[in-house]
Design a protein around this nucleic acid. Structure first.
Lengths: 270, 270
DNA sequence: CAAATAGTGTCTCTAAGACAATATCAC
DNA sequence: GTGATATTGTCTTAGAGACACTATTTG
């Protein structure tokens, strides 16, 4: 009977077939659009980062940033590293979306992907293309349900419009899985990953958790409300939002100024 | 410039280092304990399946059922297969818990694990040990928070009592991650996986979703309430539970009988 | 003062929790 | 009838949503 030490010494891990493991990251950011006149607050749009593939497969299609898991790192660290490489900033937070392992999802072979959603707080990001990426850019995201149960995922950037059709398959505590009916110009199964990530983000935003990650440390309640509204694609009444949010924030002494209207008190996450 | 076909033909996937991928499954079942007298309904206890390791590493320690991902199957299919092999039944449902990839979590090498929680509906299961498993059994599970923020996970089966100490690290939409302070007699990082799975199960049970998977197709509302109470480790008032559950169930014509007290109407999931 | 946002008060309605009361079977 | 569970009614209270109102700054 071998000891544990002897067992491990003769153990050959190479005797099993192994998949390649990648992480794909849906990086969310809220982009401000200049208002119609200088007195108004900025408008918000939710957007995600996509890179244009410079190589086969899916050459010239748009894909999520991601890459292979390396020895000695966790999948979370891998996801953070990929976003860092692509944007030069570390995301404020990261959360698991699911593991995508459908056979045939990648024509290069047996490759499974751990998908994450991440939130990036501010603009001023220098996008840069890596080895695989010819180009990168932020796309506004919209996911709408058609009357027949089909979801339309639309990603737009200037005059580029990517459109994918999905069908909801299963849902468990905020993790919805989609089946891809038409991937449009998106690479791999990334349309499904994006839709799942948005659903997870919305689920998380329901309890006022992830919304703070979109903002700097100090923020106005109006800005916070706008984030919530932008993510959930709804509008809420100010009085009610403020009543619910009070438990999650604390006041600071500071105010905004010079905005052409009444200053707003700055708050901090509690 | 190669075509996609040419690119794939010369693509060598073996040039990247790859981890081994396993699934570990926390199989939940509710076990009935005979009541003190024949007129009373049965008592419920929540339990999970553990197998005793017959090989190194962690020889003789208790571990979750699981195994290596095989080519051509999804991780969900792998999880279902492992439970099937161990219990001879297919779980009523399965849900993702997380992906565990901390370097060094497995002394055999670079092995990452996709963890799932599954629910098995009824008793009458023939447990059998597989290649790696000398023994298998259902352990009652209890997770309690100490006053200092440390969680105690206790698994008991007859006179076997496994005890692990954990610390909560992060939580996002019901997915709580634990750090292991003392793994007790549990193998690998399975104490953390079990605690995460139970947290996820409870989160899911909050909206009356997973609780039906513990019961046969037709059930009494009292049985359903007992499931809810057993999972959440709370007790609720019958009137309130029934008011909330009505949207999720529909009546049948059938009743229980011969139980020594008033018969109960059987319901079905809607 | 006008334009715009910031911030508060309060009414209504629904849902959650607590508790009491009644119903029905096996023995 | 007794012991046990099954099932329903309703009171109170907390919270969500709606809406109206007041406050404060810049130009």
């Amino acid at each position: 009977m071998p000891t544990e030490k002897e067992f491990l010494a003769q153990y050959d891990i190479g005797s099993y077939q192994r998949p390649s493991v990648t992480t794909d990251v849906v990086a969310f950011m809220i982009r401000s659009e200049d208002a119609r006149n200088y007195r108004q607050n900025a408008l918000n749009r939710l957007s995600i980062l996509l890179v244009r593939r410079g190589q086969h497969p899916y050459k010239d299609a748009w894909a999520l940033p991601g890459g292979f898991l390396q020895p000695g790192e966790t999948v979370e660290a891998c996801a953070l590293r990929e976003i860092r490489e692509e944007t030069n900033v570390l995301p404020a937070s990261i959360m698991p979306v699911g593991i995508f392992s459908e056979p045939g999802r990648d024509p290069r072979g047996w490759i499974i992907s751990a998908a994450y959603a991440s939130v990036i707080s501010e603009s001023g990001i220098t996008e840069k293309g890596g080895d695989d990426a010819a180009e990168a850019g932020w796309f506004d995201i919209a996911l709408t349900e058609e009357n027949n149960g089909v979801f339309v995922l639309e990603l737009t950037r200037d005059d580029i419009r990517l459109r994918a059709l999905l069908r909801e398959r299963a849902s468990r505590f905020g993790h919805t899985v989609f089946e891809i009916e038409d991937r449009g110009e998106l690479a791999f199964d990334h349309a499904g990953i994006i839709a799942s990530a948005l659903t997870a983000l919305r689920e998380d935003a329901k309890n006022y958790d992830v919304i703070f990650d979109f903002l700097p440390e100090k923020f106005t309640l109006t800005a916070l409300q706008k984030v919530q509204e932008t993510i959930m694609n709804i509008s809420v009444l100010t009085a009610n939002f403020r009543r619910k949010i009070t438990d999650y924030v604390e006041e600071t002494d500071e105010y905004t100024q010079g905005a052409g209207h009444r200053p707003a008190k700055l708050y901090r996450r509690k």
